[in-house]
Design a binder for these strands. Structure first.
Lengths: 257, 257
DNA sequence: CGTTCCCTTGAGTAGTTTCAATACTTGTGG
DNA sequence: CCACAAGTATTGAAACTACTCAAGGGAACG
């Protein structure tokens, strides 16, 4: 079919096709894209709640998320805290490469597919092609920017807004990697997951969801958010996507233009 | 004096002597250290509350903090949120180099001294010496790890514990860059500053401080924390310094050994 | 020596937690 | 197809945590 073959031409990278999509990707040359794709040694399927890498463990591979969603979690006592969320195209544990061990665990939410990248491969490639170091550095800076926004979200927003913010971010990040925006945003979150992302109790997460429904902003059922007005939801959550650095001019891009 | 000249020999880097101290610094060779030191074009003194770089502005220099403390702040409405804290040796706005603009402002707390580093210099040096890219990448990963801990802190801890955690982190980070640990930790924080770091109101910050005194864990007067038992304070705040990656084996270090 | 921050305290309100009980879903085996 | 179990979602009540508004006290600085 015409559409399919077009897609083939524009996106021959089955595994890493979403890597830095919406950001630096359009400025990477064919060679660099091929290099990143070549890093993936093999694929791995994960079922729900499967731990890809555990906190404090020494690691010798990294993974790029191809399909599905993943959490960054820290267990403390018998409680779990979620400190980050990942969408396809994200290098989920790249920092393990440079830091040697992880300060948190990487866990799937729902089924997921990852590409496994041996550290050795990154190492060799970076020596052969120094620009790759810049690219990976850049990717981890995006993570840090998202972390900062979460900090502000936790400092500024009440529970219903936090939940709305999480979904707004997810929607925008998925859009950046090519998922069209619809009225329903499907996610395999339980209310416990939402609570652990927002730093609130599960019961309160439930009431916060009720508040969003009450306000007519969104309905959330079994993780899926339904809204007829994303703009209103974003405004309510004080969501400003600037921190995701979509389509902004980047240093690396400028150097090449 | 003997001590002084020893210090001279071991630490000829007046401006960047604290860069990555306690972490990767001991694995950097003389040449790399000299390169980093050479990046600093000039020094700049900052008085209290001075904005070094403003959110959303395009930037063409970065800065390394030499002396004093700085905040990463985001203004929203007429409220200020503090999303990060920096100690001497930190590259405070390195991400501006790769991302082109900042998602937050960098502001001094008390007087501070920074070394100004033109992006152009970093650019040139990185091409000449690719290992520098690794080193800078590593530095920004440490920032991200600290961000994650702040997220968990905000999710897990109540107000008095948050304040205690902030001081425990500050104490440990200062110790890493060579400041000896004492019973008094001097910081130019107002209670508003503490409130904005903890995501609570200033009034509540005051009461949280009162609680720490009540518990016999610490006294905080005009930003300075006095405690006779750091271990007890750390335990109370559930502070575990692992996320600061002090003295752990690092990939880059291993490659060279 | 007064102005300006900064800190402290009180009272009432709003947001959040915990515990506990009940209902709804989904998947499984009978 | 039904019964059941396990996980998930919902609701109520009481207790706690944190917020706002407001007023007064204290320290630093010109």
């Amino acid at each position: 079919m015409f559409l399919e073959s077009t897609a083939q031409v524009e996106r021959p990278y089955d595994l890493t096709g979403d890597f830095l999509a919406g950001r630096l990707r359009k400025h990477l040359d064919q060679d660099e894209l091929a290099c990143v794709e070549g890093l993936v040694a093999h694929e791995r399927m994960l079922s729900d709640q499967e731990v890809l890498a555990r906190r404090a463990e020494r690691v010798d591979t990294a993974s790029i998320l191809i399909e599905g969603l993943m959490f960054r979690t820290i267990e403390s006592g018998n409680q779990r805290f979620i400190v980050g969320l990942h969408v396809p195209g994200d290098f989920v544990d790249l920092h393990g490469f440079a830091l040697g061990r992880l300060d948190h665990s990487i866990v799937s939410v729902g089924t997921a597919r990852v590409g496994v990248v041996p550290h050795l491969g990154i190492e060799r490639l970076m020596q052969k092609r120094p620009s790759l170091a810049r690219i990976l550095w850049f990717a981890s800076l995006l993570d840090a920017a998202i972390h900062r926004q979460w900090i502000q979200m936790l400092e500024q927003l009440d529970a219903p807004r936090r939940i709305a913010h999480i979904y707004c971010e997810l929607q925008t990040r998925l859009e950046l990697v090519g998922k069209p925006s619809t009225r329903a945003l499907r996610a395999p979150f339980t209310q416990y997951d939402l609570a652990d992302m927002c730093g609130i109790s599960a019961v309160h997460a439930n009431r916060a969801i009720g508040r969003l429904r009450e306000l007519g902003l969104a309905q959330i059922r079994r993780g899926t958010l339904y809204t007829s007005d994303w703009a209103a939801l974003r405004q309510y959550a004080r969501f400003d996507s600037a921190y995701l650095y979509a389509d902004t001019p980047f240093k690396l891009a400028e150097m090449r233009s």
